[in-house]
Amino acid sequence: MNIFRLAGDMTHLMSVLVLLLKIHTIKSCAGISLKTQELYALVFATRYLDIFTDFISVYNTIMKLIFLGSSFSIVWYMRRHKLVRRSYDKEQDTFRHFFLVLPCLLLALVMNEKFTFKEVMWAFSLYLEAVAILPQLVLLQRTKNIDNLTGQYVFLLGAYRAFYIFNWIYRYFTEPHYVHWITWISGLVQTLLYADFFYYYFNSWKNNVKLHLPA
């Protein structure tokens, strides 16, 4: 474990907590894409298949349970909770996430570390996580006023993977044979997708104006 990875995990945890806080306290999911939340639930479900077979550490297991539990409960809230679901913007959140899942699955069948079920599912989860934010970014472009919690949620979600990139660089230089192109390329693409969001988020923070993405 290194400081970059710990910072990344904590930032990721914060993003999930910010979202749960928003949904649980003000019972609103305005501006949040259910499609992205469903994709994240699928990412964790396919990433953590080994949660009960390969024990890494208490920290690792607890974090996996938190990410699995929170992502599925957020989807449940947005689909089932009578108050929360009312604030869900179904008309605007129209990204057909099936067109993200299928290419990622096909790519995972071709590009993987080993052609076994677990390895293919693992590669699939990395490719899917890289693009899972797209429905959310599209929704942000459409909804004019982005509330602070939603902006913070997306920012933290993007920042966590950026920390992971520093973690991979650190591990590459400190651990022999630590080379994982699938993880690195997926993580880089994922972070680049946030580039313009980061740009507008930073500017809105600098000029102290409401976050507003150009149409």
């Binding site: 570390e113 076994t116 993880t183």
Partner: peptide
Amino acid sequence: ADESFVKDEL
């Protein structure tokens, strides 16, 4: 070892 690398990252 043929075991695929241990996925120690989240």
